[in-house]
């Protein structure tokens, strides 16, 4: 009996730039992901609570709830959830919010402008490290 077809990996994209989110959705869908979009941290958290994702892509600067607050909330709910941060910030070192520190892992920061291929590669390696089923 053949293995059942594995369900695609679920990615939550929290990004307030609708055009960037749309293009990512198109790209990742074509690469076999199920994509959920959220316009800010607040919506991201709501969508995650309703339908937990395997991976999260988030911007930092967003209205209502920013990326750091979203990451803090997600870490409370899922300590090992792989998170990919896309940001236009020049520097990530901001005191205790230093995203490169150990306490936020697993987390990867990519600087905008980001190549979708690099996003795909990063998601793939994050998924592998988290021992998620292959893409």
């Amino acid at each position: 009996m053949p293995d059942p077809v594995p369900a695609p990996l679920h990615v939550l994209v929290a990004e307030d730039e609708a055009l960037a989110a749309m293009a990512l959705e198109d790209f990742l869908s074509r690469k076999g992901f199920r994509v959920t979009l959220a316009q800010d941290g607040q919506e991201g958290l709501e969508r995650y609570s309703a339908d937990p994702a395997d991976l999260v892509i988030t911007d930092l600067r967003m209205p209502r709830m920013d990326g750091r607050a979203l990451i803090r909330e997600l870490r409370i709910r899922a300590a090992g959830l792989p998170i990919l941060v896309m940001t236009g910030f020049l520097s990530m070192e901001a005191g205790e919010d230093d995203l490169t520190s150990e306490r936020w892992q697993p987390l990867v920061v990519l600087r905008k402008p980001v190549s979708p291929q690099v996003i795909l590669d990063t998601l793939t390696s994050l998924a592998r490290a988290a021992k998620l089923r292959p893409v």
Partner: peptide
């Protein structure tokens, strides 16, 4: 930061279209 936003959109759309 402000300039990285449109640049990001351009890059994702361009590479997605290329793909």
């Amino acid at each position: 930061h402000e300039m990285s936003q449109p640049l990001n959109i351009i890059r994702i759309w361009a590479e997605n279209a290329l793909s």
